[in-house]
Design a protein around this nucleic acid. Structure first.
Length: 571
RNA sequence: GCGCCUAUAGCUCAGCGGAUUAGAGCGCCGGCCUCCGGAGCCGGGUGCGCAGGUUCGAGUCCUGCUAGGCGCACCA
């Protein structure tokens, strides 16, 4: 838990009051002297948000945690602390000792209502915090090979990476979104030769796709495009020249295609980092030299090795093959070295499940370069299976198992795709229910949340509401009229938002956001069901409820924005 | 063989640093609109793979086992 926003303030206040009470209890002898130090070791973390709101708005587990050091039953510690609690001037309505030794705190209605005013004042900024203190963090994601179209796993990585970056920004880090373009090396040649084969076929010549080449139909499209632009020139080239020329052409075309799909998906990168342009021979040999200087390199069997086992890998890895060529691993190390030289202290890579065997060696290499452990974090985005009616779906019957991202966008759309990808933890396998995602009229989770937003928007534009909506910043005194349980429950959940954002960012778990947004939508619908917003004959209460509705809309809009999902005013 | 991920309701999954009574969506059954958007709300029930361990307390931590997925190149 990160203490930010309204709940963070309350958490700090409660933690402070408990610390003071423990101090007094220790002086008075009702607690042993060890209690002070033991509590100090806990920080503010012992003040938690209970799962069940009948246990209060905040609860301290300090008595349970102090039981060991104090050698006293937790319940008695709780009572000793309770007896010394001084809550004057604090937004706490009541406290209780409960269960095995929790101290539960019920925040006052005044606190809740001030929170509504605070949200209204913050608007678009509500949810932002400064826990990152402006630290630059790089998030690199998707980075697919430009040898074929993006697939659904790439789409998932795009949703997760983009939202993670947004969360980091909101939590006060400076996130940079980077895409690494693998436009160098053997695969470009292979791609070029594959295109060449198709190009020859276009001209009625026999040709075979080379071993390890690319067979997708898109290669034919590329060959056609190439022919239209450079067909004449190509006729005069040697096969080798053609492979190079076509390889570059194809790569550019694929990268453009990736950019287009990602942009359509709402993902805009700060940097498209070309391997060919940046990871030069020079960069590679500098990297090798640095690793040698640091003493982690040795020669064996004609190859140059990095002693990654020093840093937890299960075997050493080759940097330079015995034929003198650098491995991709070395190029990748050079790339990561460059990231850190650009000033990032924290670098997060999102990789596909086919690369999880490479995690250890890459982290080992970064450690070998002298970076702190944890400077590089690698998140594995797991497989996506598209399901339709409980069966594996084949959206693309044309070729293989790879379902293009484009088809997903065409069929499902951006909002549902992104939301669905963000409903699950990135490291668990995802069964994507196409039928459910396509539904626009029923219980699709994304529509559930958007519906709440649209419903509020509808209320706020009712004729009897508009005048009040304009002056919501003046409703402060009326907010005290919000005393219904459904109102308090909703406000309480709205108050969590900044901590939800900060915690999701720090844990690198963007999927928490969709759950939170769903919770807020549920709390709102319940409120709506029990409390009439546009109450007649009671203008103050109406203004208060409009204020709450407007605050809810802010939280929903901000949550959806972080997810990259639209927040419609009507549906 | 080694490594990583996963195992929670009929299905897909949450459960964030261990904490009071384990949740959501879908599916199924039954209620709720003279009223701000019924794309909503309320009710109905089954579950932490197995076995140990640590602890005042384990879905959560540790060990072993079982099952599923993935990875184990001088490929990129």
């Amino acid at each position: 838990m990160t203490a930010v926003g309204p709940v963070g303030e309350a958490r700090r206040a409660v933690a402070g009051a408990i610390a003071a009470a423990v101090g007094r209890a220790a002086s008075a002898g009702s607690l042993p002297a060890e209690a002070r130090a033991a509590l100090a070791g806990l920080g503010e973390a012992h003040v938690e948000v209970p799962r069940d709101n009948s246990h209060g708005d905040l609860a301290s587990t300090a008595p349970l945690r102090l039981a060991g050091p104090c050698r006293m039953p937790p319940r008695r510690i709780a009572e000793a602390i309770s007896a010394e609690l001084d809550l004057s001037g604090m937004p706490v309505q009541k406290t209780e000792v409960a269960g095995p030794g929790f101290i539960n705190f019920f925040l006052s209605p005044t606190w809740l209502n001030r929170t509504v005013a605070y949200i209204l004042a913050e608007g678009q900024d509500y949810g932002r915090s400064d826990v990152g203190r402006g630290a630059p963090v790089q998030v690199e994601f998707v980075s697919a090979n430009p040898t074929g179209p993006l697939g659904v796993v790439n789409a998932r990585a795009a949703a997760v990476g983009d939202t993670l970056a947004s969360l980091l920004d909101a939590a006060g880090f400076r996130a940079q979104r980077e895409y690494y373009v693998n436009d160098a090396g053997g695969q470009v040649r292979r791609l070029g030769r594959s295109v060449e084969a198709r190009w020859l076929e276009l001209h009625g010549e026999e040709a075979t796709i080379p071993e390890g080449g690319y067979r997708g139909e898109y290669i034919v499209d590329i060959a056609r495009a190439y022919d239209a632009e450079h067909g004449e020139a190509a006729r005069g080239m040697s096969p080798e020249e053609r492979a190079v020329s076509m390889g570059h052409f194809a790569t550019e075309m694929m990268v453009e295609d990736h950019k287009e799909n990602l942009a359509r998906f709402g993902v805009v990168y700060d940097v498209w980092y070309s391997q060919e342009a940046n990871v030069t021979q020079e960069a590679i040999s500098e990297t090798l030299a640095e690793l040698e200087r640091r003493g982690h390199v040795y020669r064996r069997d004609g190859a140059v090795w990095l002693r990654t086992t020093t840093f937890g890998d299960d075997k050493d890895r080759v940097l330079v093959k015995s034929n003198g060529e650098p491995t991709y691993f070395l190029a990748d190390i050079a790339y990561h070295r460059d990231k850190f030289s650009r000033g990032f202290k924290e670098v997060i890579d999102l990789w596909g499940p086919d690369h999880d065997g490479h995690v250890r060696r890459m982290k080992a290499a970064v450690a070998a370069l002298g970076q702190e452990a944890g400077a590089l974090e690698i998140l594995i985005v797991q497989w996506v299976r598209l399901m339709e009616g409980g069966e594996l779906a084949r959206m693309s019957k044309r070729r293989g198992q790879i379902v293009p991202m484009k088809d997903l966008l065409d069929d499902i759309g951006v909002d549902a795709s992104r939301f669905f990808f963000l409903m699950r933890s990135h490291d668990s396998h995802l069964d994507f229910d196409l039928e459910l995602a396509k539904r626009q009229t029923t219980e699709n989770p994304v529509y559930y949340v958007q519906y709440a937003h649209a419903r509020i928007s509808s209320i706020l534009r009712q004729p009897e509401a508009v005048a009040d909506v304009k002056s919501l910043d003046e409703v402060l005194p009326e907010l005290d009229l919000l005393t219904e349980p459904a109102e308090s429950a909703l406000i309480r959940r709205l108050a969590d938002f900044p901590e939800e954002v900060a915690d999701a960012a720090l844990a690198r778990e963007p999927h928490r956001l969709t759950r939170y947004a769903t919770d807020v939508a549920t709390a709102f619908h319940k409120f709506y069901d029990t409390c009439r917003v546009l109450v007649e004959g009671d203008p103050p209460l109406r203004r208060a409820r409009l204020g709450l509705a407007a605050a809810t809309r802010i939280v929903l809009a901000n949550s959806l924005a972080l997810c990259g999902v639209s927040a419609p005013e009507s549906m």
